[in-house]
Nucleic acid binder design. Structure first.
Length: 226
DNA sequence: CACGGGATCGTCT
DNA sequence: GACGATCCCGTGT
């Protein structure tokens, strides 16, 4: 996918450059979230290969972010993964139905993660169509964190899975395209109204000029909204 | 297009 | 026992 409306020039990176520990262990999770836009999410397991351009993300950061599952460094069996060193998947079940895929970032004991909310399907379209039961031409195929995971075949079985080790079923690649800053939009995060003042933090990032993003819903605060 | 409700279950209180 | 970092479908305009 080399769309000049989204990408600037191609950089000198070799193609298919799998992101490694040094990328994920950046301690600035908001910066990592931005950097993940324009990269490619890839899954390959059971002989099925799929990829998509990452078009929408959100950053979550313990201990100060009330929207983060590990707010105040709360450790539970589920959130323990977020305290691991960056470069593993954190996948959890939402509303009993949807499997939401996050990338754990930062050093060990830093419970930071980036929620991948949407991708533009690129390869393995027939596989994604079968998983979703719809045409791969429609952005609803993979625009939204629940449906993105479904299209890519990601489930909670993969929580704790490394994204960097050889042979991992899921990883992220830099294919050498450089985003223009002007093509990155930002907003508050979706569905975190309970997070009080943190619900107003502009930690959702997305590619402008593409239909492959979820519909934005502004936060509805019960009170104390500046 | 806006809104509202139901689905469905692991997790934490 | 309550509640989601959501989605889809139905209704009404």
């Amino acid at each position: 996918m080399n769309d000049n409306a989204i990408f600037g020039r191609r950089s000198e990176y070799p193609k298919m450059n799998k992101l490694d520990h040094s990328f994920y262990q950046n301690t600035d999770v908001v910066a990592v979230a931005r950097q993940l836009l324009g990269k490619y999410l890839v899954t390959e397991f059971d002989g099925l290969y799929c990829s998509g351009l990452i078009t929408e993300v959100e950053a979550y950061r313990a201990p100060d972010d009330k929207a983060c599952h590990a707010y105040n460094n709360r450790r539970t069996k589920r959130t323990e993964i977020m305290f691991w060193p960056g470069g593993v998947a954190y996948v959890y079940l939402c509303y009993g139905i949807h499997h939401l895929f996050n990338v754990v970032t930062g050093d060990a004991e830093m419970a930071h993660a980036v929620l991948i909310r949407a991708v533009q399907a690129e390869e393995g379209l027939e596989t994604m169509e079968r998983r979703r039961g719809m045409s791969a031409r429609k952005p609803q195929l993979s625009s939204g964190p629940g449906v993105m995971s479904k299209a890519m075949g990601i489930t909670t079985d993969w929580t704790g899975q490394s994204l960097v080790e050889d042979g991992s079923p899921i990883w992220i690649e830099d294919r050498g395209y450089e985003l223009r800053e002007q093509n990155i939009g930002e907003s508050t995060r979706i569905g975190v109204d309970y997070a009080e003042e943190c619900a107003l933090w502009p930690w959702r990032f997305f590619l402008k000029d593409t239909k492959w993003v979820s519909r934005f819903k502004p936060p509805k605060l019960s009170q104390n909204s500046p």
